[in-house]
Structure formats: structure tokens, C-alpha cells
Design a protein around this nucleic acid. Structure first.
Lengths: 211, 211
DNA sequence: ACAGCGATGTCAGTCGCTGTCATCAAGTAC
DNA sequence: GTACTTGATGACAGCGACTGACATCGCTGT
């Protein structure tokens, strides 16, 4: 067993540096931020991480995925939260409640999120991938709702509307210097969507001070 | 003037066959349908159209755009329709009304739409591009609303919700053998979204027979 | 000791996409 | 009607994303 302890400290015994995936991720985010996504080659990322281009593609499906693979965990959380919602909950409520709970998990990563979002915002290709991930989230949420007995189109519409709420809230959270945290912004955006679709607003004659 | 008439029939006077763009479009749709988007090279499309790969990229920005460049016209129509809506119209209503009007323009292209959608559905890359185009539509609609004096987040939410409605309705129109036309389906989906976000539904205990 | 595993490297190749220059019919100027 | 310009195309070279095939070699289990 003492061998294991030594091994932990003596990297010369290992054939390669550990955490190559993490090194690739760090190198990619840094380079995308420095010179832009389009002006960064995969070979450069790999070299900075002390690896080869070929190894990059063993860890990530493509050049963009390095910024998006983490979304999978979020999706799993949302799906299981919706699945565990009280049976009496309305579909849209189940979705927004799950989003609120998930929003709490971002609390301590606001700076990382900011950096990542600024990189994404600067590249059309990365924005494209973000849309795909959000659509995948919506689709997974709709499935979760259907498993609860919600029929279409209510399932699809609730899920899509929920994702719209999340997008709006997340963007505010990242860009504004607001003191409100993400869960609060999610609840607020959900309420605003309800008001909008209720069709109670007239142009330039908002009933409340919300907008 | 008679020269012009002769020229119209005597293609030997022209250096190249006319309508190269249309030929490329036709060849691409056919090949994507036959062997799939990923298994079709641009060189093959160009050859079938009697052109070179280089010319393909002079007509279309990339391999996918050949199926999506037409969306631009739809976007312009929606924007100008929203801009011309009665000043008293609520934002979400202005959007859904515009969508309904646009839906009428698809009437005679249902078969083409079906073929195109089946090709898109079969390829992750094409679905990706479709999402981008829809997001662009939403963004343009939100801008149009803001120009009418609608503030955010109402503008963004109304536009996004409108696009969600369009997606759902279009998918039904293309996939179902329903006799309902696209404008009808758009109105119906909009009503369903309103019901869902109103939060009046309970799982498996819908108040109306809508779902 | 030995066999197999697994993360990595090496190398060659395909394909999307771009820059650059040449070509040549049609239109335009004079 | 000659010369100049324009516009759509071809030809070619090249970059970078991505893949398949095979080699390497510490580590692990027996």
C-alpha cells in the first residue's frame, strides 16, 4: 500500500501526466479566450496541454465539445428532478422548479460561467453548439414530462418554454451585475413569461412595472 | 429584339447552362436524400450539377446552407408583418398573427417541405443548422417588437414563444396526415401554449380535451 | 515472469472550405 | 468594330478538422 502513496507523489513512475482531459479543457478555454475560437487550432490546444492533436479527439468529439460536455450532468439532474416532482404539480411548474434547483448549483461558478459565455458569444460556431445543447435539454425535459403522464403538446411546450426561461435568466445572471442569484432570476423570468403569454399587455402600456 | 428571343432558345450562345444555383440545390437535395448528408461530398453535388466544387462554394456559404438560404425571405416577411401590425396588438398576438400569415405561403409546398424535413431530420449537422435559423428568426422578431416599443423581456419572450409555436405546428403539418392547414395548426398551437403557461393543468387531469 | 489493457503517439488520408489566378463570353464605351 | 470591363466559372494549391490503423510501453492481475 505504501507503494500507492509514493506513486501519488512521484509522477516519474507514471507514464503520462494525469488529468489530460482537464489540461485540454483549460488550454482550450484559455486559447479561445486569447485569440478566438476560429483562430485556434486543435494542434495548438493539444501542444499547450502536452498532448497530440489525435489525443484531443479521443477525449472530445470535436473542437467545440470541449466547452459543452459538462451539460450532460445538468441534463441528468433536470430529468431526475422533474421525475421526482410531486404528482400534483403542473407540467410547467415541475419544469421551472427543477430549473430553479439546478440554478443553485451554479452559485460558485459565476466567474467561470462568465468567461465561458464570453468565449461562446464571440463565435458563431460555438453559439450554434449551445443551441443544440439547449434543444437537447428541452427534448430530455419533454421526455421526462411524458413519463409523468403529460401528453403532447403540453409536454413539448412546457419543456421548450422552460428552456426559454432558463436562457433568459442565465443571460441576465452572467451579464448583469445584479445581486440576484440564478434561482431568483429563473423564478422571475418564469413569471414574466406567464404574463406575456396571458396576453394582458399592450404596447407601451404595461400593466405592471415589470417591463 | 428578335435576337433576344432567339437567345432565349439557343443556349449555345451562352457560355454556361443557366440557373446553376438551382441545379446545385436540386442535386444536393437529391443526393442528401439518396445517401444521406454525411455520405455526400460537395464534389459529387457539383459534378451532378455540371459544375465544380469551387463553384458550389461561390453560391452557398457551406454544405448545409444549400437547404436553408430560403429562410431569409421568410424572416423578412415576418419582420415586416410584425412591423405593420395594429398598434393596439399585444406582442405575442402580433407574433402569432404574423406566423399565421406566413404559414399560408407554404400551402403549395407541402411535398417539398416533407422531403426537406426528412433529410434534415436524418442528420445531426442539418438539425443544428435548422436550430440556428430558428434562433435567428426569433432574434429578428424580438427586434421587430422592440421597434414597436415593446420592452425586454417581453419582446424576447414573445418572440421565442412564437418560434416554439411555429416549430410545433410545422412539425405537425409535415408529419401528420392531418387535413388541417398550417395557419390553423399555428393558431391551435398558440392557444395550447397559452393554456400550458397559464398553469391551469394538472397531470393526467386536463381541464379541457386539448391534450 | 508474463499476458493483456489502456492511454498515448505516429502517420497517412479524406473532406470541407479558401485564396489566387486564369479564362472567356457578353456587355459597354468610344 | 476595336478595346476595355465584368461576371461566372475552372484549375490548383493549401490549411485545418477529423478518422482509421497500427505501434508503444508502463501498469495490472495472475
Amino acid at each position: 500500500m505504501s507503494v500507492a502513496v509514493i506513486k501519488y507523489y512521484d509522477r516519474s513512475m507514471a507514464r503520462w501526466e494525469p488529468n489530460s482531459r482537464g489540461r485540454l479543457e483549460q488550454a482550450a478555454l484559455a486559447l479561445y479566450g486569447e485569440r478566438g475560437f476560429e483562430n485556434t487550432t486543435v494542434a495548438e490546444i493539444a501542444t499547450r496541454a502536452g498532448l497530440t492533436e489525435r489525443s484531443f479527439f479521443r477525449h472530445f468529439a470535436d473542437k467545440r465539445e470541449v466547452l459543452f460536455w459538462g451539460v450532460g450532468a445538468l441534463q441528468e439532474f433536470l430529468v431526475s428532478t422533474v421525475a421526482g416532482a410531486p404528482g400534483s404539480a403542473a407540467p410547467f411548474t415541475a419544469v421551472t422548479d427543477a430549473l430553479e434547483a439546478a440554478g443553485a448549483m451554479f452559485q460558485d461558478r459565476r466567474e467561470y460561467a462568465r468567461q465561458r459565455q464570453s468565449v461562446i458569444a464571440a463565435s458563431a460556431e460555438l453559439r450554434e453548439r449551445e443551441l443544440v445543447k439547449l434543444a437537447s435539454l428541452a427534448s430530455a425535459l419533454a421526455d421526462a414530462l411524458r413519463r409523468r403522464g403529460v401528453k403532447d403538446p403540453a409536454a413539448t411546450l412546457s419543456a421548450e418554454a422552460g428552456i426559454t426561461v432558463f436562457k433568459v435568466a442565465f443571460e441576465r445572471w452572467v451579464n448583469e451585475t445584479s445581486r440576484r442569484d440564478l434561482p431568483q432570476l429563473i423564478r422571475q423570468s418564469a413569471d414574466e413569461l406567464k404574463a406575456v403569454t396571458a396576453g394582458k399587455t399592450r404596447v407601451s402600456h404595461a400593466r405592471s412595472g415589470t417591463y
